[in-house]
Amino acid sequence: MTEGSKSKATHREDFVPPQTEDVFLDNAALDNVMSTVIALGSEFWALQKRMNVMETLLEENGSVSKEMVEAYRPTEEQSAAWEEQRDRFINRVYGFLQNTGTDSKTAG
């Protein structure tokens, strides 16, 4: 918080956090490992997206800088293609989580 900012007075410290533990599996460690694996997926996708942008910029310009990557705006076609790439990644990697012994063992 910036000292002297008006923002200082506009929020309160007495909010109430959730009272329920979110342990759904055999033990908390298993839940935590699953959450970590899912969170890593978001970090992976951030890297993948950066790679996509860099490849595009290199093809278009022959050079790339951090500023160019941050400023890049994908076309509608690129957005659609990258969204499909993301969804295939999610299905391919996390589809295994559906294999719980109640039906087929095929990912996705």
Partner: peptide, 17 residues
């Protein structure tokens, strides 16, 4: 930041899935 936006895109996709 682009990475923040990308993580949110992943979360959107993962929530959809």
């Amino acid at each position: 930041e682009m990475d923040m936006e990308s993580r949110l895109e992943f979360t959107q996709g993962f929530r959809n899935w």
